[in-house]
């Protein structure tokens, strides 16, 4: 768990980069810091491992005040991933990944086991990459190694500063997905800086939107899209926020809200299961000439049918501005 308590950063010349921010990131969840450049999101992130000193307020990580710890020790307990991966070009992939265990004085066998485990976790063959150098890897591979390095000493908390920002859209989508799978397995408490609302919706359990160093709104993505607290947040999430929110809901959510229509037709061209996102379901309806989708359960047994109107009603009900 990470708690920010009235955290303020004032740079020389009385420039307020972060202004009295208070928020709590629950254990094992991902909080995305979102906002335009210069809004203080990166500064706030870097205050957690004290790369930027705090002017006022407190940050506690798992109940411990970060100021009470030696900053070197503190940083070794917090995973850190940056946009340009920051891999050390003079070290092999194995040396890069095991650098923190190495600094902590783990024995060789333990370091090697950890390397093998982490490379498997990020989907790379350990033996194939062990003795290679960062420049021999593609951007996506480098970023995966960067993530593996950050998790090397199994820190409970990870800081990620636009980790996928330098990747091309296809690779980025792919790694985002992979990362969510990894997160399901490792359950870290993660702070994730981004300037991309779509990435934030995809990655975040909660999203904090900042403007000029102040926290505008801190909510779950569905809440943020359904009920933006002010004009800034509304503009930032965009006029297409209802369409964005489609990817956050599944067919199961829709059925919970709306009583399923019994199946009338005998044959359907389009079938979806309960875990399909509404975004995919809508895309299928737009692409085909069909009016209805057949919803099936895990055993491929029909449950009900869904139409565009059903989705529309559901969205209108859920995304009305407060």
């Amino acid at each position: 768990m990470i708690e920010f308590d009235n955290v303020t950063k004032i740079y020389k010349g009385n420039i307020k980069a972060v202004d009295q921010v208070s928020l709590t990131v629950p254990q094992g969840s991902v909080a995305v810091f979102l906002g335009p450049s210069g809004c203080g999101k990166t500064t706030l992130l870097r205050m957690v491992n004290r790369l930027v000193p705090i002017t006022d307020g407190n940050i506690t990580v798992n109940g411990m005040d970060t100021k009470s710890l030696n900053e070197i020790e503190l940083r070794r307990k917090i995973g850190y991933v940056i946009q340009s991966n920051g891999l050390f070009p003079n070290m092999t992939i194995e040396q890069n990944v095991t650098i923190v265990p190495n600094l902590l004085g783990w024995d060789r066998v333990k370091q090697r086991d950890r390397f093998n485990y982490l490379m498997d976790l990020v989907g790379m063959e350990p033996d194939q990459f062990r003795n290679r150098y960062p420049h021999e890897l593609s951007g996506g591979q480098q970023q995966r190694v960067g993530i593996a390095r950050a998790m090397a000493a199994d820190p409970p908390v990870m800081l990620m500063d636009e980790p996928f920002g330098a990747l091309d859209p296809i690779i980025r989508t792919h790694i985002q997905k992979e990362f969510l799978q990894i997160q399901q397995e490792v359950q870290k408490t993660i702070l994730f800086v981004s300037h991309d609302i779509d990435e934030a919706i995809k990655m975040g359990d909660r999203i904090a939107i900042f403007k000029d160093g102040s926290l505008m709104q801190y909510d779950a993505p569905t809440e943020l899209l359904a009920q933006p607290k002010n004009q800034f947040v509304q503009d930032f999430v965009g006029t297409d926020r209802s369409i964005k929110s489609l990817s956050l809901y599944t067919v199961a959510d829709l059925l919970e809200y709306k009583k399923p229509k019994p199946v009338k037709k005998s044959s359907f061209n389009l079938k979806v299961d309960l875990d399909t996102s509404l975004r995919e379901a809508m895309a299928m309806l737009f692409n085909e000439t069909e009016q209805e989708l057949l919803v099936v359960d895990k055993n491929n047994q029909p449950i009900c049918e869904v139409t565009i109107t059903d989705v529309q009603q559901y969205l209108q009900e859920n995304t009305q501005t407060a």
Partner: peptide, 20 residues
């Protein structure tokens, strides 16, 4: 970026100098 990473993962000034 490399220097920042070295700091961020908890290297001392000396370690940063010698290793990176």
């Amino acid at each position: 970026a490399i220097r920042d990473a070295a700091k961020g993962i908890g290297m001392t000034t000396w370690q940063r100098l010698m290793k990176v």
